[in-house]
Design a protein around this nucleic acid. Structure first.
Length: 417
DNA sequence: TCTGGGGTCCTAGGACCC
DNA sequence: TCTGGGGTCCTAGGACCC
């Protein structure tokens, strides 16, 4: 059996933990630049505020219903996520952290009452962190997702824990779940399935395998088997990322090279830190620049470039040099840039990689980066940085940011004063 | 005026080999 | 008029997730 644990309204719940006056109030959390709604409490959902709604279009709704609005505080959410995952890891030796607020556990070989086991998780996590969760348990990952949805949708009857452990329950659940709400069925697949008369998850499991394979590839077929109760989607326990990106939309248009370059330096620096943090070296750097796609009066420009590095590296100095080189290739004057991004990929392990015969990362950088990371980790972040980067890593609108309750001692002192 | 960010996996088709 | 067959590897782009 597998359990899928999902935090309820995670970002909104995080804000609530440290501010109990927000209980029972509608809360929304906004994306960077206070752009879109990316999380809503149940109360906010009931007001009809959709996921992804541009905040400026909903200002009057926010005012009218006294919605508590927050700028995204990812430091806080990341730290809370850590605490929740830590607790959950005690419930199984095999876990997969699927996203910031979701985790699969394999319960293989454990002789337990699955419903009570889930209930215990719910009680412990709320007691120890203040975050409400739902637990779904079933013979496959896709069915655990379905069970989780039931646990979340019917808290009164399930108490936040639901188990699919019989054919009756499986079929009943799948006849209830709309096809477009199935994990792995996106807009395109839903469209194809509607055209075949498929409305519920159950209808999908009745489709011929040949049709599924032809129109939805092997991915769709695996999903179908998983929903039938035949385990076909494996646990993924690898902790290291295969790619690391830093992309941002700017608070305003940038129209000179030096400004854009400064952002590229900052984003490359951030990505390189994450890369070193997982003890990897990278071999490929991708970079893109983009103008405002919503501005109809100006022509839209998007350009990306891929640099295959001559050697594996995690040195900020070297990666920044490559990124700026790339930027010179795709940057055009007389355009108003709204967004840029840097992605590192094709990693190798820093401890056991094959150096090149001809070119290699400057060995002096290794120790330098170690010291810089140590200083930045101990004191304020970015207290040591490249001269090409200015002191603010993030330049964006954050008018409703909550304090860094759990992570940044400097912020806490500032608040107390 | 204001519209997010960070991931994974799969496949078709091109480039190349003998 | 007639112009092979069988592979591998790589990548851009598309689909999906939260």
């Amino acid at each position: 059996m597998y359990s899928l644990i999902d935090c309820n309204n995670f970002y909104a719940s995080c804000e609530r933990v440290f501010n109990p006056s927000l209980r029972n109030k509608p809360i929304v959390v906004l994306s960077n630049n206070d752009g879109c709604v990316i999380a809503r409490s149940n109360e906010a959902k009931k007001l009809g505020i959709p996921m992804g709604a541009p905040a400026f279009q909903y200002q009057s709704v926010f005012r009218r219903h006294d919605v508590k609005v927050f700028s995204a505080n990812f430091h806080l959410y990341g730290d809370m996520s850590h605490r929740v995952m830590n607790i959950l890891s005690n419930y199984s030796p095999v876990s997969e952290i699927y996203s910031i607020d979701e985790c699969f556990l394999s319960l293989h070989g454990m002789n337990i009452d699955h419903y009570k086991y889930g209930l215990d998780m719910v009680e412990k996590v709320i007691k120890w962190t203040g975050i409400p969760i739902s637990v779904g348990t079933a013979p496959t990952k896709a069915l655990a997702k379905v069970a989780n949805r039931i646990a979340k949708k019917f808290p009164q009857t399930t108490n936040g824990s639901y188990v699919i452990d019989s054919e009756e329950k499986r079929i009943k659940a799948l006849k209830w779940l709309p096809i477009e709400d199935v994990w792995g069925i996106g807009r395109q697949n839903a469209k194809k399935l509607f055209a075949q008369g498929v409305k519920k998850a159950y209808d999908f499991t009745e489709m011929p395998e040949s049709w599924v394979l032809k129109h939805m590839t092997i991915v769709g077929l695996r999903l179908q088997k998983d929903l039938k109760g035949i385990p076909s989607i494996d646990m993924e326990t690898e902790e290291k990322k295969q790619s690391i990106s830093t992309t941002r939309t700017f608070d305003r248009d940038y129209d000179n090279f030096e400004d854009v370059k400064e952002r590229v330096v900052a984003f490359t620096t951030l990505s390189a830190e994450k890369l070193r943090n997982q003890n990897s070296l990278c071999n490929v750097l991708n970079l893109f620049v983009e103008t405002n796609r919503f501005k109809e009066t100006e022509t839209y420009y998007y350009k990306s470039i891929q640099l295959k590095l001559p050697f594996s590296t995690s040195s900020t100095i070297e990666l920044v040099a490559f990124a700026v080189m790339g930027l010179k290739h795709i940057y055009h004057d007389h355009l108003h840039y709204k967004k840029v991004g840097v992605t590192l990929s094709h990693f190798v392990d820093a401890n056991c990689h094959q150096p090149s015969l001809f070119f290699n990362s400057d060995p002096k950088h290794k120790e330098l980066m170690r010291v810089i990371d140590k200083i930045n980790g101990t004191y304020q972040h970015n207290v040591v940085r490249l001269a090409g980067m200015d002191e603010k890593t993030f330049k964006m609108k954050q008018e409703h940011l909550s304090p860094a309750y759990t992570t940044n001692i400097n912020d806490v002192i500032e608040v107390n004063l």
